[in-house]
Amino acid sequence: MTAFTALLLRDIRLSLRIGGGALMGALFFLIVVTLMPFAIGPDLNLLARIGPAILWLGALLASLLALDRLFAMDQDDGSLDLLMMGRMPLELAVLAKALAHWITTGLPLVIVAPVLGLMLNVELRAMGWVTLTLLAGTPALTFIGLVGAALSVALRRGGLLLPVLILPLTVPVLIFGVAAANAAIVGPAPFGPPFTILCALSLASLVLGPIAAAAALRHGLE
C-alpha cells in the first residue's frame, strides 16, 4: 500500500466511524434547504425557479463548514507532525486528505441533492443536470476550502475565520455552477460553456489548492 492510499483510506475510515461526521454536511444541507421556503414562502413556482440556486448555496455552505476540522484534528493529536515527515511530498498528502474529505462530505451532498430538489419542485429531468453541475463543482469548493483549512490551522484558529477567508474566493464556482444548472433547465444560453468552465475551475483548484495548503502548513512552522 502506498502512503497516498494509506492516508486516503485512513481519512475515509475515520470520517465513517463514530464521531467522524461524514454525514454531518448532508444533514446541514438538508436543514439549510428546509429553511429556505420559510424565508421566501412556499410558492412552488418561485421555488422551482430558484431551486438550483438554493441547492448550490446550500452545498457551498455545507462543504465549507465541514472543512473546519480537516487539519485541526491531525494537529491536535500530533499526526500533522508525522504527516510532514513522510517521504511523500506534503502537497500529495494534503491532496489525499482533500480527496478523502470530498468523498465523505462532498459526494453525499451530490447524492442527496436530487431528493432535496424534489422538495423544491425542481423537475426530475432538470434535477439530473443540477446534480451533474454539483458533481463537477463541489471538488472545486473542497480544494479552495482546503487552503482556508490549512491557514486556520497554521494560525491555530478555527471557527468563522475559514468561511471569511474562503467564501469570496468561491464566487466563480457559484456563478458558473448556477449558470450551468439554469442553462440546462430554462435556457436559452447553452449548457456547454459554463459547465466546461466549472470543470476547469475544479481542475485548476485541484492543482493549486494542495500547493497553497501545503505552503500554508509549512509556513505555519515556527
Binding site: R13, I18, D81, G86
Partner: peptide, 16 residues
C-alpha cells in the same frame, strides 16, 4: 524523512 519523532502527543486516532 530519515527520522522518527516521538513527541508528547501520540498521533493515534481513538476510533481506529
Amino acid at each position: 524523512e530519515q527520522a522518527h519523532y516521538v513527541g508528547h502527543q501520540d498521533a493515534l486516532k481513538p476510533t481506529l
